[in-house]
């Protein structure tokens, strides 16, 4: 099917979203909560576009990350109305998370130097995009969720402090777009979500690798013994080289 984006007729397949078609064709649309590897969310609304069905219908503002393509859609990604929405959204986010670098950069790109709204008291860097929650669910630990409602919502462990389901893989912290989740590695210790994990020492060099819980989790999901995950990649390569050496003969 054909979708028209910003005046260009573009070929699209039915399972695609408008965002995917736009990106595939080099049309930039800003996003924050979108993550290609995770379930769509539709919360940040930065990716909104104007859409008209069949060229004559009413102009609707839709999130391109969730809007499936339809034959004959006409889409505009950078109209004054859309740019204004994005600027206001970033202005709002800047009031929420004034210290988040990704938000500062995006806001600046949309002409917002500082927020025109009332800044949040005691701000953190979390924009509630839910990427961490979805990543954790994808990992299979499902240790995170949203607690509270509305402006009082926050990313949270069950009951606020039950980190027992966390495996300490760090996916949440490393995939957070604003760096809102703190994870510190000191020696073999990893602290995240208020819990201290021990990272397994590499059997060869002793360097800390993944956490014991992550190894057990991967073992459970793959059916392989937990030991197969414990070595650091450098020592593994070295072991591989020795294996090859044995095979080819000295």
């Amino acid at each position: 099917m054909i979708v028209n984006i910003n005046g260009r007729d573009l070929l699209a397949s039915p399972e695609e979203t408008l965002l995917q078609v736009a990106r595939r064709n080099g049309i930039p649309i800003p996003t924050l909560c979108e993550h290609a590897g995770l379930e769509p969310w539709g919360g940040c609304r930065l990716c909104v576009v104007e859409m008209t069905r069949g060229g004559t219908g009413p102009v609707r503002v839709v999130p391109s990350c969730l809007q499936p393509v339809e034959d004959g859609l006409r889409v505009e990604t950078h109209t004054p109305r859309i740019l204004r929405i994005r600027a206001v959204l970033l202005d709002l986010l800047l009031a929420r998370t004034p210290d988040a670098r990704r938000i500062q950069e995006l806001a600046l790109e949309h002409g917002v130097k500082r927020t025109s709204f009332v800044p949040r008291r005691d701000p953190d860097k979390c924009i509630l995009c839910n990427i961490c929650v979805r990543a954790c669910a994808a990992v299979g630990a499902d240790a995170l969720g949203t607690a509270g409602r509305g402006a009082a919502g926050r990313i949270s462990l069950p009951f606020g402090d039950d980190a027992s389901a966390c495996v300490g893989c760090g996916a949440c912290a490393l995939s957070c777009p604003t760096g809102a989740i703190e994870m510190t590695d000191r020696g073999s210790e990893r602290r995240i979500w208020g819990r201290t994990f021990q990272r397994l020492p590499c059997p060869s060099c002793g360097a800390p690798t993944l956490t014991r819980e992550h190894a057990a989790h991967l073992a459970g999901r793959s059916g392989l013994p937990a030991e197969s995950f414990g070595a650091c990649e450098r020592c593994r390569r070295e072991q591989a080289s020795r294996l090859f050496l044995d095979l080819v003969g000295k």
């Binding site: 893989c169 760090g170 995939s175 690798t209 793959s222 995950f229 070595a231 990649e233 593994r236």
Partner: peptide, 15 residues
């Protein structure tokens, strides 16, 4: 698509 869980890093038998 990557969420940086690094399961692949630990899973590759050849490092």
């Amino acid at each position: 698509r990557c969420i940086r869980c690094r399961a692949c890093v630990w899973a590759c038998p050849w490092g």
